[in-house]
Design a protein around this nucleic acid. Sequence first.
DNA 1: GTAGGTGCAAAGCTTTTGCAGCGGG
DNA 2: CCCGCTGCAAAAGCTTTGCACCTAC
Lengths: 157, 157
Amino acid sequence: MGPIAHGHDHGGAECWAERATETLATAGYRRGGARAALISLLDDQRCALSAAEIEDTLRDGDGGRPVARASIYRILEELEALKLITRVEVGQGLARFEAARTEGHHHHMVCDACGQVIPFEDPDLERAIQQLARRVEFTVAEHDVVLHGACAACAAS
Amino acid sequence: MGPIAHGHDHGGAECWAERATETLATAGYRRGGARAALISLLDDQRCALSAAEIEDTLRDGDGGRPVARASIYRILEELEALKLITRVEVGQGLARFEAARTEGHHHHMVCDACGQVIPFEDPDLERAIQQLARRVEFTVAEHDVVLHGACAACAAS
DNA sequence: GTAGGTGCAAAGCTTTTGCAGCGGG
DNA sequence: CCCGCTGCAAAAGCTTTGCACCTAC
């Protein structure tokens, strides 16, 4: 595949993929095709993907480079340990993963009818959680808010 | 922690186990030993239990009556469908369940070091979620907030 | 050349499903 | 009596681990 196959417009902010690659290098990791493909894919996404979706997209997608399931999980594990991605538990034993960008922190609404995952942001909610984190005797590292219910389409039917 | 007597004080509120039993009867379910034992156990708990914990406690605990794993999951599924219990996803493909009491709605802090689950309440957080639910084009039925991090003991070490 | 990355296959884990038997109404 | 609740065991996910080969450095 081409050296810079996927064109990103790096307006002014450094893209996440770059930061991830640097962080990995600093942490002593070498470069590898599978990891590069996975990082590139995650960088293109607007919302969380499941491991299965990642595998399918890498196999069938354009920048397509088949990556073994084991490698996917191993790489996701590394990225999560370095806090480069966030794990989102959406229920039914399914986990989803997404790039941990500095901007655009968000949470998810999961339609229990069709399984669709919709991201949303809410400053008030974030504020409430931060104030809460200060009050409790517990060191909060991450927080996860999942709203279950029905999306517009499923609620109508 | 505040010693909120977990004894069944039917002061003014009906206990959860009673309501659960009634709801099940109304829904056309018959009574059964396994289900009764499970409801009794859940009624005694202050916080969410995993399926494995439920199985172990029912086998070894005092009101002990061994219940097959399959029955546990089936019963939990029924109770969840009737909204008598709430499923809490804490990560690593593990689910926890707890009685859905009308009072004492709360969320959870999960220690990623020792796995401990600590409940907490926060009116501000609830308010933020309710206002959010009004704004979005999504019918919110449930919401789940999970704080990951380190408990006081694990943070110290 | 060496240490680490990757793929394949097999195991591990929680959870679900099928079927025979017990028990409530 | 009949229907549904239970238990046992086997299967079905998703995820992890072992081992051999390949690649970056």
